[in-house]
Amino acid sequence: MGWNLPTFPRASGRGPISGAWIIVLLFLPRALRSGKMILALVLAAMPILLVGSIGILFDLPDHARRGGELFDFIGTLAYLQFLTPYISLLFGSYAISEEMEGRTAVFLITRPVSKLGIAFGKWLIAAVCTVSVLFLSLVVFNLVLGSKVEGEGLLTDLAPFYRYAAACCAGALVYTAVFSALGAWVRKALLVGLLITSVWEVVVANVPAPVQGATIMYYCRVILVRGGDSLTVLDEVIVDLEALPGVGSALLVLGSVLFVGLLFTAFALRFREYSVEQ
């Protein structure tokens, strides 16, 4: 007959950590080459183009402080309020749902890998993609702004950059977990996520009332404000600066939301019957 059955060892299976790690290792390159990554990069290039245009059109005063103000203004509006939630939504909402909608989930769930591992791995890919895009964009943004203000490299004061990087990364980790869970439970998760992001995270977070404390954005702002000198733009947005929690408390809240998001994703994979729903 000419056939020889392979005699390699049987599949040994993977636990949550090993399962998550192998998912990242195997599927991250695919995510980095995806159309979503291109779209995210285009979105992330917008603030850079904006600051570049401002630099070309207007004479920025040769003063680092003004550069810092511009960084603060664009950083808050573009990076924290727009790019962080929306890029997280782009990667997060598809983390699980693309496997379900593309009907490739069967290859993942009929293998010896724990559902928690799949959830964790898929979230990690979304988080890594989002954080990479945001961080890269922030670095280039800082370089462009620095060159316009002082004619040389990065701005002298790197503190705002670090604070924004920390706030955006923390936000990205939490948002991607929340949107992964959304994608695992809801059909058309991108649309639902858009609604949540636009109504809840953008509008509610800017309502001059204590309700803004119920948004993820609020705790990202805490990292910004408490992480250094108070910032002009946020001074006007945050209702009660005195009552603002510390960075530790904010991280605790964000960490809890992240954990719940991952748990919900794992629950969805464990208890939902995707092959039926397809």
């Binding site: 390699f8 060892p9 599949a11 040994s12 299976g13 993977r14 192998i22 998912i23 290792l25 195997l26 599927f27 290859f107 993942l108 293998r111 010896p112 890998v113």
Partner: peptide, 9 residues
């Protein structure tokens, strides 16, 4: 390869 590594090989 991906599915096999995913399965623990």
């Amino acid at each position: 390869c991906i599915l096999l590594r995913y399965s623990g090989l």
